[in-house]
Design a protein around this nucleic acid. Structure first.
Lengths: 342, 342
DNA sequence: AACGTCACAGAAAACCTTTTCGGTCAGCTT
DNA sequence: AAGCTGACCGAAAAGGTTTTCTGTGACGTT
């Protein structure tokens, strides 16, 4: 199966090939192709044709060496598997791709050693900047202030306030969720959420509480912290219904938890959304659309987080450094699991 | 918030800085650091210390320009959002990272124009090779034979048999699934699967049929093609139970379909796995562990597909080209939804 | 003392592009 | 005819590293 011929592997054409074919010097060829003046229109045309014939593509490596900027950035994720990195990565890739910047992808797999290794490798390649994507919104160790290139932290903020971090506004997300439920006329709202070790869980709960307080209300019972799983969603909902049979809304800390809640509600004969409204967080398409009824959820706008991080890195590379933690708003996506009380 | 000072942005040390500090010429410094001979041990030591003091990292850009190989590859996905690309990407990143190769990530978003654009950009950066990751196992258009670097197709094979493609063995996966159900003593096996426009659906069905034929059996009814959704899983299972109330196993074309099937079975009072065994494909953790009972599923070994693609690209870059479609075996992951008939 | 050998260090070329600066030539003015 | 202007083109340097080739001493041999 293996063999050694393969397709044509001729070395790509260089500028001097183009120049030779067009009968001009290298310098003239460069000027002609880059739209600089000092070149007669007719000469320029000859060069352009020669370049086309050889399918010449300027060597970005050489250009990078000369310019001191390579037009590349490193994107360092700590956990590709987790589903939060992907939309951020897509947003960043999108924003950079438009700006002719190429992205090196590195996955540290949650290992600090590997992360250090990747940082060194990326610096060796003279990236113009770095984006560090975390897997949780809890603050993470800074890469340090002594790096030769700007760094932007996305999703997981840096512990160092001198660094620039872009994160979704989880507190605001909790507020928005409760505001939506209040707008639906719900007043007995319970909150079932995930692992209290996660800032996301605490922040969302805090936002929910604050929004209720603003309305002169409070949660039905304490927030129920547990795990980010359907199993916990089911268990906690069962308990909730025993203790507070009159709830008219369950705000769940994730779509998975919400899915579990929906299943138990349905099994126990509660109608959603007529009797009880249910909401989740993350707006994870596969889950929200598989739920019965489809799940209203708060979208964390992660793709926008990625785009914003990319833009921030752009301006930092241009010399204009930001600092501190910048939060981005989320948005409620309404589906069948919430509706006004009739 | 924005401002212009920021951390130290001194240009990284160059080899000539090191040489000057060590009091030797650039050439000697290079030889000392790269372990070549022609350098006295004492001199070498001085150079190494100087390099450490300046935290010198050789400029891979310059090295790449000289060597003609950049130590970079392009990873071109057609659909990052879809969950199949990610494990492949992780496997490839893993295999390359160990080999000191850096990966450019590009997402074409299913758009041919954008794909072409990315290919050109990557070639301009003089990548040593390309991996093209598809979102479906259906054959896709080749990038062409005239590219100056080797290309390996992963997941979605190239239409051109001269190209090298690495794909999971969906036919084999169908066989393995049925073999497992047969080993559990099941004989009345139904198959509910997804969109018949997908080769994955057809291949798995074909494998299932072949394995049953080998055992002198056939499917309970025709394979039920539909959509890759829980909704279809529910609907098809309801129909199936009406038509064939005596099935003792349902092989589902995806974990989502299987989840729908499980829900309907439970709602109708069938015990899983005692009365009916249920299996899915893809081994999508979030789903398999959220199911009641946890779902037995066929893992497509996508990470291994990514690793194999990376290895194949490695050897292709070394000049040893493969061709044709190479299939990789899958594996059954047994959980609570299948068990021997008692 | 002349020569050869050996160990080591440095100069320079190569990789490819961009940019600066100097040079050539036609055409024009005085 | 001499000088000037302006348009155009090419030589060369720069960017950082690796490698080849050419020294340059020290030392040992004849």
């Amino acid at each position: 199966m293996a063999q050694a011929h393969g397709p044509s592997r001729s070395a790509p054409a260089t500028l001097s090939d183009v120049a030779r074919l067009a009968g001009v010097s290298i310098a003239t060829a460069s000027k002609a192709l880059n739209g600089r003046d000092q070149v007669r229109a007719e000469t320029r045309q000859r060069v352009i044709e020669a370049a086309a014939r050889l399918s010449f593509r300027p060597n970005q490596v050489a250009r990078g060496l000369l310019a001191g900027r390579t037009g590349t950035v490193g994107l360092l994720t700590s956990d590709l598997e987790g589903r939060f990195s992907i939309p951020i990565l897509m947003g960043a890739e999108d924003a950079f791709g438009a700006g002719e910047v190429a992205v090196f992808l590195c996955d540290a797999r949650g290992d600090t050693i590997r992360e250090q290794h990747h940082v060194r490798a990326l610096l060796g390649r003279r990236v113009d900047g770095l984006i560090v994507v975390g897997s949780r919104t809890d603050p993470r160790r800074s890469l340090g202030r002594e790096l030769p290139v700007p760094v932007v932290y996305a999703y997981a903020p840096s512990e160092d306030p001198e660094d620039l971090s872009i994160v979704p506004d989880n507190v605001g997300a909790g507020r928005m969720a409760v505001d939506h439920l209040l707008a639906c006329g719900r007043t007995r709202i319970a909150h079932i959420t995930g692992d209290p070790g996660y800032a996301a869980a605490r922040d969302r709960a805090e936002g929910a509480r604050a929004a209720l307080a603003d309305a002169g209300l409070s949660l039905a019972g304490e927030p129920r912290f547990g795990a980010w799983s359907e199993g916990w969603g089911r268990a906690a909902t069962a308990l909730l219904l025993d203790r507070h049979p009159d709830v008219d809304a369950v705000l769940c800390g994730s779509d998975q938890i919400a899915r579990g809640a929906l299943d138990v509600l349905r099994e126990r004969g509660h109608r959603v959304p007529e009797d009880v409204a249910v909401m989740g967080f993350d707006n994870w398409q596969v889950l929200t659309s598989a739920c019965r009824p489809p799940l209203t959820s708060v979208d964390m706008n992660l793709e926008e987080v990625g785009r914003a991080a990319a833009r921030a890195l752009f301006t930092a590379i241009a010399g204009d450094h930001g600092r501190g933690v910048e939060t981005l708003p989320c948005r409620v996506v309404v589906r069948g699991s919430t509706a006004p009380l009739s």
